[in-house]
Design a protein around this nucleic acid. Sequence first.
DNA 1: TAGGCCATCTGGTCCT
DNA 2: AGGACCAGATGGCCTA
Length: 247
Amino acid sequence: MDSDASSTCSRSSSPELAVDSSFFSNKVFQAYCTDRETGQSRSEKLSQNTGSGGKSPAQADLSKDDLQDLRLKVNSRERKRMHDLNQAMDGLREVMPYAQGPSVRKLSKISTLLLARNYILMLSSSLEEMKKLVGDVYGARSQSHSARRVLQPTSAAPASQLQLLSLAPSLHSLVGNNTMPTVGQAPHSPPTAGYLGFPAPPLPSLLKDPMHLSSGYRHFPGMPCPCSLCQPLPASTASLHSLSMGK
DNA sequence: TAGGCCATCTGGTCCT
DNA sequence: AGGACCAGATGGCCTA
């Protein structure tokens, strides 16, 4: 996963720094050249302020050109590191429930992190809630079945199996491709409009009728599912924003 | 114009 | 020794 430093720029107005190719058009480098014209590099100025400059003996032995090469190399690595970091931040933005588009201002880094945290907390609590609901529903059903139990091998499921069965749809609904873009999907296909906080089609009354959990829909990984559980969760973007965009 | 956000440079520190 | 990571400094861009 070696990202090209020149391929990512999280800010459109930022200077295009294709590291080696366009580095010499950078304003910083222009200032650097100005310093060189006066016979002093920026690092040399700084090192004058700090006495020896903290250079190792090996670095002290290097010629001026070698030091510059070294400095450029280090700068390039640092730039690439920050580009990778920004790329990861963009990836995070892509999966956040936040309106995206050319007319929408990009979330700041701090906002992205805060929103991500709150979103994870919200998903966690949703998952717990759904587990509880589904468990209750299946528990009630198994009790009613046992009251009028007919001994058929296929209908007699142990409680542990019922628990697992009850978890499957809820897990599917949370990680399914209709509710959240998967990791592999995110960079290439935009998340659904409802997920991003754009006006979404009216939801079927999710969980209003718990019996729909036993619907006959089969869930296949990666395949769209028509069951009501797999419809997008209400993208309560406003509430998320109230949590994260306090300032 | 002030303040927020960002990219970049730089030196220090830690790790392999 | 070299690279990754981090934080401080600096300057540019944008918006209220």
